[in-house]
Simulated scan of single mutants.
Amino acid sequence: MLTNPNDPRVKRTRQLLMQAFMELLEQKKNVSSITIQDITAYATVNRSTFYAHFEDKFTFLESWMREKFLEKLKDELPNASLSDIGSLRTLILIVFDFLFCTRPYMSLADRQYETLFELVMQKELYDLLFAWLSEQAEPSLSRKTVETTARIASWGIFGAAMEWSRQPQQSSAEDTVKDVLVVVAAGLAPVTG
């Protein structure tokens, strides 16, 4: 792995590999059918370049999912941070929309990657919620209480969105997000006051 992720050459190469993957995904329509060889050939780099940036396909996919999710957060959530119940609603809607948009690229063969994607998204949700709750928390609350609250809320949001994304025809995202927001807000209330 390269040691300086801030080097412009490293950023360009990683972006080239990610873009190649996205274009291949549009063509092939599922994650498992795309090999490292496909990515490097499409990006016109050799395999050793890929391995200089990523340990394997799993670390590549983890990075890709994180990057795409953070990009969506940045585009749709001002300053990529939470400030009130409205931004919490926006966050929940982003998670629902993101999973809905990525679901078509997941075939039965891609089930091996679902856990990886779940962990990446849930971690990013947790980090965002923990940062917000740490700022909002009553001074008398312990860090452990704030961590636990952020963990439960992040899994609750993610789990509800994952379940909904499997059968979106059963209810609208907007209706489901309203229900999730009520439950999550109630769970956060003891921390946020």
Rank of each mutant, 00 (worst) to 15 (best):
I36P: 05
I34T: 02
L61V: 02
E114M: 14
A52H: 05
V10G: 02
D175T: 14
L24Y: 13
D38Q: 02
T13Y: 07
L70K: 08
V10H: 08
F69N: 04
I34K: 01
S171Y: 06
A52P: 04
A153T: 01
I34A: 03
H53Q: 11
R47C: 08
L125Q: 00
S63N: 11
F58K: 10
S32W: 04
Y126L: 08
K11H: 07
K57P: 00
L73I: 02
A20R: 02
P139H: 05
V191A: 09
L16M: 10
F58M: 13
M106T: 07
S33Q: 02
L2S: 11
F100S: 10
V184T: 11
Y105C: 03
L133K: 02
L25W: 04
I94L: 08
K72V: 13
R103E: 10
I157Q: 05
D127T: 11
A20W: 03
Q15F: 08
D75H: 05
S154M: 01
E26P: 01
L108M: 08
A131F: 03
M1W: 10
V182T: 13
Q27A: 14
L70I: 09
S172F: 03
Q167L: 12
S83C: 12
N4T: 12
Y105W: 09
Q15A: 13
K29A: 14
I34N: 01
T49A: 12
E62G: 09
N46V: 11
P139Q: 08
K29T: 10
E163Y: 13
K29R: 14
L188Y: 03
R103N: 04
R14F: 07
S134Q: 08
L77W: 00
D179G: 12
T13P: 03
S171A: 15
